[in-house]
Nucleic acid binder design. Sequence first.
RNA 1: GUGAGUGUAGCUCAAGUGGUUAGAGCACUGGACUGUGGCUCCAGAGGUUGGGGGUUCGAAUCCCCUCAUUCACCCCA
Length: 417
Amino acid sequence: MGLKSEFKNIKGTRDILPEEAIRWKKVEDVIRKKMESYNFQEVRFPAFEATDLFRKSTGESTDIVKKEMFTFEDMGGRSLTLKPEGTPSVVRMYLQHGLFNRGALQKFYYIERMFRQERPQKGRYREFRQFGAEVIGSVSAETDAELVKSALDVFKELNIKGIELNINSIGCPRCRKDFVKELKSFLKGKLNGLCEDCNRRYAENPMRILDCKIDRTKLKDAPVPSDFLCDECREHFEDFKKRLDFLKIKFNIDSRLVRGLDYYTKTVFEFVNTSLGSQNELGGGGRYDELIKFMGGEDTPASGYAVGIDRMMLLLPGKDEKISVDVYLVTFDVESDLAGFEILNELRERGFSCDKDPMRRSVKAQFREADRQNAKWVIIIGENEIKRGVVQLKNMNKGKQKEIPMEIDKIVKELKC
RNA sequence: GUGAGUGUAGCUCAAGUGGUUAGAGCACUGGACUGUGGCUCCAGAGGUUGGGGGUUCGAAUCCCCUCAUUCACCCCA
């Protein structure tokens, strides 16, 4: 014991041990059930894609593409990247398989691992899991509200409290043009008073300056996108808010919420929780009406979001579950061991989880193991039982033991009580 | 990428200003109880004190470097 391996998990990754895995399974079950109740269809996609997919869709000016991607070359010299987010892959999948031929409206969800090369901290890992949903083919604000609702449903089902919803509209390329013009003229004289990042954003993606935490107060009077919405975008935003009201979903309008991805249009939103510490954003999303056309498809509206499951798990009430097994077998000699083994196999076929000691250790050791495994029942077989054609069935919680015939149906009947 | 904190057994933590062989609880293995778990008692196993270098008669302790890790900044999920 205690031989130390020279290997350990890589920075920003983590192992999920059995007790925690039980929690994960429950959470994933809830996600699947809820998503499917909205008729989102599950899709799964590769761990890595062509680097250009993210460059083009996530956007060159984003932090993700600029400094957070795990990028490597395959033996043919192609540049590949571990997926940092899901939307580009879903869009790629949609276009590649001609899923528009299945109907104008497609609704997907996914549970996938994502990879971003950032400095890890509480609630932030380099390998993390997200669930997300994407609706392709609907311009309707109803869709945006439905997406929001589906995420809130998951939080609710998991008993996660204290989630706040922030929303905003950042308009379409047409109205954004006016806004950016106005923003730039507002910023012109102030640039050398602003931080380095803001100066870079001024050239690359001025809207994101609104996001800046350092210069917040200096930018208090800066124009915001929602003041420049065209009629169509304004109506869409109004409709979105009305839909949320109708669903009795509370929200804050954050006129400076712009989000970090290049492809968003109109609706943007995020879920936050203040008790999470600095990584308080649980999930977010928005509409991306231009992306599919930009990626080579027909002009198709779309909307979606993603939620960090690891982060969500930090808010999950309750403790890790104990592992447990239905039946543990205790035997005394070779003959009873074989008889018991046969019973175990039959019980396994009938759906019971069963186990036994493979090393023929002492009875005491076998019982200790049964206890450690949280066995509900122990089946005891020895020389006497074999001779008389019976087994002892012990209820480990009550500590009571009962003798019953060595017949599978009779044993099963007892186990079901 | 920047800043701060922390590294002692599988886990949680001890070892006054440097001083024999680095300890305890939990967990693990075995025994007391050779056909019955949890409780109790006894015993055993488990350490390059993260690694390297330096100061010193002597370093877990002081200094330097390095690595890991945590939190925060930035940004995101």
